[in-house]
Design a binder for these strands. Structure first.
Lengths: 156, 156
DNA sequence: CTTGAAAAAAAGTGCCC
DNA sequence: GGGCACTTTTTTTCAAG
């Protein structure tokens, strides 16, 4: 899995730069890492093909995109079997407000991260995912008061 | 804050596309949304300037980038004042393994998301952030067993 | 693995409708 | 918003070290 062994200093530098700003041109990147545009391009293409770079995306400002409220919800299931876990996650991930969904160890079984337009959306989501007829025993809502860090980049 | 009111169907379509793949060219995007390249370019530039698009970045595959283990840690502080909260967060966000850091409501005060190379890194991080001399009363570690969803995009 | 130069493609600009 | 002509920049390609 880990491709770090096959990467040299320049690859890591390129990845760090592209994780910060992938809108920069190849020539620009090449200049910064001290490579010719052609070799630089070959590097970035290789990094894409190898899957180290998963994708190039636009990151929106959630607030300006209308998702003002963020929350984490820790969920304890009633039935803990693999199939029940999967069923719950399958349903949860179809929800647009659910940005992250994890099966976890500890007191609870699942943690969801939510990006909500308003509390009404939270209410209706709870109704769909956590109501009595579902496989949810209890859930603990943590409204996010402050975002101190939210990093897509992985330092190399 | 919310800029949705000023956005029409085409803006939203553009944002959805760019959140999936921002490496596409302007001509390509223009074609898909049914606009001329020039108007499409005006749109995307406006969306960048307005801040709806925060940034264009490369997303790495965490496993292939050497961060195989993910965990969530819910932290309960000893002292809950604003200044103590800030101090803790300020220290936490300097850690490379901490990808997300939130102040939250509920039983605990802070939730961190970690991307770890190995358990040794977790050990040393705990030592720095959670040891006795710090402002941490208790912490609950949730190792992430399965990632069912991890979405950077916001559906519009 | 690298370079440099040439060719092709795309993007950015300005202006007009 | 679309269209166009124009300039600039980027990307690709290729021969070569």
């Amino acid at each position: 899995m880990g491709m770090l062994g096959k990467m040299d200093r320049i690859d890591r530098k390129l990845l760090n730069l592209m994780q910060r700003d992938a809108s920069r041109t190849n020539v620009d990147l090449a200049d910064e890492v001290g490579l010719s545009p052609s070799s630089c391009l070959r590097r970035t293409q290789r990094l894409q093909k190898s899957g180290v770079i998963d994708r190039i995306v636009a990151i929106l400002n959630p607030a300006k995109a209308g998702r003002v409220i963020k929350a984490l919800v820790a969920v304890e299931l009633k039935l803990h079997g693999e199939q029940h876990m999967r069923r719950f996650l399958d349903i949860a991930i179809t929800e647009e407000a659910v940005s992250h969904a994890y099966a976890v160890t500890g007191e609870t079984d699942v943690v969801l991260m939510l990006r909500l337009r308003d509390m009404e959306e939270f209410d209706s989501l709870c109704e769909r995912l956590f109501r009595d007829q579902t496989n949810v025993a209890r859930f603990f809502t943590m409204m996010i008061i402050r975002t101190a860090k939210e990093e897509t980049a992985i330092r190399l």
